[in-house]
Design a protein around this nucleic acid. Structure first.
Length: 190
DNA sequence: CAGCACTAATTCA
DNA sequence: TGAATTAGTGCTG
């Protein structure tokens, strides 16, 4: 059998069925929670770079990672910024810089498309950043939902659930942080 | 070659 | 003052 064959799994989180696919030791695709298992699988395979038909189902795939993802949807502050590895080989150098910059956005924080572009050394390429995010195959692992517009708008979102999911995830993270923070920290506003 | 998950500057009311 | 328009941007179908 082909050593590069993708393996995938679908598992239940508090928000619904989450899809996860790996190739070798890297995550190559994820899909955000959907109401049905079938929808999750469809969304996941759509994010697979190549040969979805060859992907093998594996129930116990990356158990530790599954637990972290489940914990995320339970409202825990989970950090995916350095782990797991993601396969970015198919990206241009610009795309890789954008994806890397995006992963550095901490839980509960946001950045603008413009800031990411600037970080990648292309100050005017905010729109190109949007294009890269739009095709992100690993939502949540690369937290593309934390990228918003400069004018305060959310921008767009093409993963499962669309813009509503993006807003919900941002609120979810901010609530998680607020819950973990002592009330005294809120008095700062001058 | 047209079109994006964008932005900042410019142009008209 | 404020809404609408327009270049500039890097990549994809």
């Amino acid at each position: 059998m082909n050593a590069a064959t993708s393996r995938f799994t679908i598992f239940q989180t508090r928000w619904g069925h989450f899809g996860l696919a790996c190739r070798r030791e890297s995550v190559c695709a994820t899909s955000l929670p959907t109401p049905t298992r079938a929808a999750a699988q469809e969304a996941l395979l759509a994010n697979l770079p190549a040969a979805p038909a060859d992907a093998l189902f594996e129930q116990g795939l990356c158990p530790a990672l599954q637990q972290r993802i489940i914990a995320y949807f339970e409202g825990e502050n989970v950090d995916f910024s350095t782990d797991p590895g993601v396969d970015l080989a198919s990206y241009s150098s610009f795309g890789q810089a954008i994806m890397a910059g995006c992963r550095q956005i901490a839980f509960g924080q946001t950045r603008t498309y413009s800031e990411l572009a600037h970080h990648a050394g292309r100050p005017g390429a905010a729109r190109a950043v949007g294009g890269t995010m739009a095709r992100n195959p690993v939502p949540l692992i690369v937290p593309c939902h934390r990228v918003v517009r400069t004018d305060g708008g959310l921008g767009g979102f093409s993963a499962s659930g669309g813009i509503a999911t993006k807003r919900r995830m941002l609120l979810h993270e901010q609530n998680a942080i607020a819950a973990a923070m002592p009330p005294a920290a809120l008095v700062v506003t001058a």
